[in-house]
Nucleic acid binder design. Sequence first.
DNA 1: AGACAGTACATGCACATGCATCGAATGCAA
DNA 2: TTGCATTCGATGCATGTGCATGTACTGTCT
Lengths: 136, 136
Amino acid sequence: MAAKKAEQVLVDQWRDILAVHARTLCELDRELHRHGLGASDFEVLDVLAGGPASDGDCSYRVQEISDRVHLSQSALSRLIARLEKDGLVTRGMCPEDRRGVRVCLTPKGRTLHAEVLPVQRAVLTRMLAGGTATAD
Amino acid sequence: MAAKKAEQVLVDQWRDILAVHARTLCELDRELHRHGLGASDFEVLDVLAGGPASDGDCSYRVQEISDRVHLSQSALSRLIARLEKDGLVTRGMCPEDRRGVRVCLTPKGRTLHAEVLPVQRAVLTRMLAGGTATAD
DNA sequence: AGACAGTACATGCACATGCATCGAATGCAA
DNA sequence: TTGCATTCGATGCATGTGCATGTACTGTCT
């Protein structure tokens, strides 16, 4: 009996996660698309931008990125290819492991990230805080 | 400054939502695929099964379902078409509004839903409770 | 050195999704 | 009744995703 109740709590919790996720991701996608990006694209850019150094060594292995975003390896590969095509990142060889690929943010990519970062923050504030305006 | 902190909290919260959502949905999909269903399919079946009466009037308007699942209208239309093709639901006309479609669970659909419901609950327990065993 | 299992990334393929649009039906107004 | 805006659901199209596989490279074992 108590187990039934606990299950119901989980179901409600899951429904809530689905709802918040769907609404926020949808809005995020809509806002980001105005800058030519999708939500996944921003995730990757954000990983790259928040990297080891903001303007020094900005190289990441694809696998490193894969650990930080919720995408399959193939999806990430194509996404990086799209970002490269758009001139936001560059792909280079690893001298250490020639199977690997080093992904590096271009100036254009860094600029775009800086441009859309406030947009993402605004959406999160709007959708997650639900109006809890942090009035400084 | 305080606003910066609040934003960081939101970002962390969002990252957590993304992680939990991705892991749970992925696992849910994997388990459900063993029964020939996707996560979205189950959502719709669940709406239909939890309907007005469990074995009487099981008709739902497509729009009613649309309000309860996080899918676009077009995706839902195709999803219902797939469910119908698999013999899990039937589509019929509304006498009231001949534009509308009434979706009804078939016995096969109801059986399948009853079969996968424990599977879904198990996944949610495993992924969300994270070991918080409800020991009665 | 040579063979072989394992890893890293790319790609073929199938499929689900969203946007824009379409056709049908409704409701309201003239 | 006719005309028009609106709504409901289906569909064409472009795109993003995952699975399975392919290709290139690494490390190990003999």
